[in-house]
Amino acid sequence: MEFFQTIDWSLMLRCFIVGGLICVIGQILIDKTKLTSARILVLFVTLGVILGGLGLYQYVIDFAGCGATVPLTGFGANLAKGAITEVQNSGLLGAFVGGVKVAAGGIAAAIFFGYLASIMAKPKIKKQ
């Protein structure tokens, strides 16, 4: 396929390694601190907003692509980036509009698919 010839395999590798390493940080937190998964998610998203706000996270994204944007830190950095961009365009109003605006796709998808899944699925026991 033509599409596969356009893939940047070196970026793929960096994406895999950086994405994996961000998850390893989460795993160490889970095993060492007994934090619940909700707290881990909050920690990562807040950290992402701070790093994004300081402009540091962009370097990770430039280096690793989706390895940085797919983890929740990327979601957080995106919120910060959106807020800053909107402030540049429309001033203080942008601080309120920007974050949710860029994240709207993800949030709406999660709500919509979540509702859809709940209509179709039945709770089941996990056999673990």
């Binding site: 619940t36 998964s37 699925a121 709770p123 089941k124 026991i125 996990k126």
Partner: peptide, 16 residues
């Protein structure tokens, strides 16, 4: 198991 997990811990489908 299921009613206790739901009340005391997390939803069953949560991947924890």
């Amino acid at each position: 198991f299921c009613s206790a997990e739901k009340q005391f811990r997390f939803p069953l489908e949560l991947g924890n």
